[in-house]
């Protein structure tokens, strides 16, 4: 059946079974390369997207459950950031994406879709997270390569930059 969902600011119609996981619609029908399949069990966070600014696991979200919620994927993060911060135009990168590159944080990078989405969710709530808050908020997003220290450092760097920009 045809289902219409809002993804990265645009209404997108797809022909899919209602029980199809949102992840497969995003990657196979809408050809987005941010969200990634990791476990399909809502345990790792590599498929995360934002729904009305709140992180959800797209692997365990049937497309029929999305409803009116606005979905933002990694690709749409700079635009969402501009909207949240009331900037005249979207930057090329969300400050956290920039921080990850500046810190050369990634190893294989497979988990970074989720790390970026979850980290951006935290930064949309506070631009002065403590280390304990970061660990707590990010818990549930696994990185098998073990880049956790650089993720934490990058979130703090992005937060510092954001609070300076006001």
């Amino acid at each position: 059946m045809t289902i219409t969902i809002k993804v990265n600011g645009a209404a997108r119609s797809v022909d899919a079974d209602p029980d199809t996981p949102l992840l497969y619609v995003l990657t196979n029908d809408l050809e987005l390369k941010g969200p990634r399949f990791g476990c399909g069990l809502a345990q790792c966070g590599s498929c995360s997207v934002l729904a009305d600014g709140v992180e959800i696991r797209s692997c365990q979200t049937p497309i029929s459950d999305v409803g009116q919620r606005a979905i933002t994927t990694l690709e749409g993060l700079p635009a969402l950031y501009a909207q949240q911060r009331k900037l005249p135009k979207a930057p090329d990168l969300h400050p956290l994406q920039q921080a990850f590159i500046d810190e050369q944080a990634l190893h294989c990078g497979y988990c970074y879709n989720g790390q970026t989405i979850k980290g951006a969710e935290l930064l949309s709530r506070t631009t002065s997270p403590t280390e304990a808050q970061i660990r707590d908020h990010m818990n549930g997003h696994l990185c098998r390569c073990g880049t956790y220290p650089r993720i934490m450092k990058s979130i703090q760097a992005a937060a510092a930059k954001m609070s300076k920009e006001g």
């Binding site: 390369k33 941010g34 994927t73 990694l74 990168l93 994406q97 990850f100 990634l106 970026t116």
Partner: peptide
């Protein structure tokens, strides 16, 4: 490869 991996490209 990092910029592409950080942005979904």
């Amino acid at each position: 490869d990092m910029p592409g991996k950080a942005t979904g490209a």
